[in-house]
Structure formats: structure tokens, C-alpha cells
Amino acid sequence: MLSKYSNSRTLGDNIKLGALTAFSAGMVNVISVIIFFAFTSNVTGHYAVLAEEIAKGNWYQAGVVASWILLFFFGGFTANLIIINFNKTYTYLAHAVPIILEIICLLIVGSYIQFYYQETLVETEILVGLMLFAMGIQNGLTASISNSAVKTTHLTGLTTDLGMLFSMFTKKEYRENKALRGKAKIQMAIMTSYLSGGVAAGLVYLNIGYNVFYIVCLFLLVVIGYDFYKLKVSMYMSARQPFLRIQYLSGMHRNRKRKRKDLQNA
């Protein structure tokens, strides 16, 4: 899911990556709205709010919103910086480290809320910023490794793309185009997962409260764990192959010898 890069990725890889990460993004977004009254996985709204606060002359709030946008930007920057620097030497780690960073950010937010949160405005501003950084990392990672096919928190663009795709599907030539159908499948998977994640977070929050953050981390652990498992299996199989080949060839050789002996005896 993570270890394949850009063009070597299959449609299945992108759907799995998109669905799982979009589910976690949906959860994070809804939880942040419930607890902090601020969105953390969509930045378009923050640009509008920034403009509004500047127009009103509320410089403190403008600064806060600007720093949130910058943190989302730095999230994407950090994820891609890690990938482009370590992808050739440590492919798995290059893709796993951003997810680990995201998990750390969400764990900090979850634990802080559980044990220390006094509901002050400064705390809210910092925690929202940390969540935006985490979402920036996730969006940057998924966009980078899928050649921009998967953007799990960019639902404005996704909905536009889906609108365009479905208008194209009114013509037979586009309906039969495998690439377009694949793209529609990814987008639908992301949209459904994002929405499901949000609904799940809302429902789960009523029962387990702030522990939702730990569930999101669990989902992200599945993403890196699955990839680690796949990588280990493929390494194990490739390591076993030469041995199997030798065994097979030596077995064939033994059979031939036996047959030759049998023929001579006969």
C-alpha cells in the first residue's frame, strides 16, 4: 500500500491507501469539530476565515488561522521531504516515517485532551494546529506516493473530479476507458470512507469520548503494519525462491538418474 511508488502502483493499492487514510481523516475532522469547533482536514474554509478576519481587523485571530494554514503546509512539506530524500535507499521507511509522525501528533493530542486539557483558548489553538500538521503530513504522503491520484483530505477537488467524471460517463467512449473508471473508483472509495469515518467518529465519540484518537492511530497502524507484512512476505518469498529452484532441479536430476538406471537394469 505504501511501499510502491508513483507509477508502479496498482489501482488496488491506491484504493486501499485512499480508503483507509480517508477514513481516519474523516474521523479526525469530525472529532476536531465536536471538541474544538474547528475543522482540521480541510483548509479551503480556513482561507475564507483568514480573509474574513483580516477584513474585520481581528489580527490575533488572523494570525491564529494563518498559523494553522502554515502548519498544514509544513505537514505536506515534511512528508514529501522525507520521501524524496529516503525513497531510493529506504523505501518502506520513507513512507512509514510520515505516518509514524502523524500517529505521534494524534497521540499527543489524544493524551493531552484526556489528561491535561483545561479548555483554554491557547490549548485549543495549539491542539488544532497539531492536528492540521498531522493531516498535512497524511495528505502530502498519499498525494506523493500515488502521483497525486489520492488526496484524502481534499474533498472539494474530489467532488469536482467526480462531477466531471460522471459527466464524461454519459459517453460510451469514456465509459469504456479503464483509467477513467479506475479514477472514479478511487474517488468514490475516498468519498465514502471519509464520510463513514466522520459518521463513525460522531457515533463512537458518544460512547468512548476522547479515545477516538487512539482508534484513528490504530487505523494508521494498520496501514503501516499491512505494508510491513506484505514487504516481509515478498522478501521471504524471494529469499526462498533460489532454494526452491535448486531443490526442484536437483530432484529432477535424481529422477533422471533413477530412470536411466532402471532402463540399464531392464
Partner: peptide
């Protein structure tokens, strides 16, 4: 520059609280 801009915006105004 960016961080300086953000901090100077926040420093020139009172927090809502």
C-alpha cells in the same frame, strides 16, 4: 519571515479571551 509575520499579527492584538 512567515513565522515572524504570524507572530507579529498576534502580538499586535489582544486575544479574544
Amino acid at each position: 519571515l512567515l513565522m515572524g509575520g504570524v507572530f507579529s499579527l498576534m502580538a499586535n492584538d489582544q486575544s479574544p479571551s
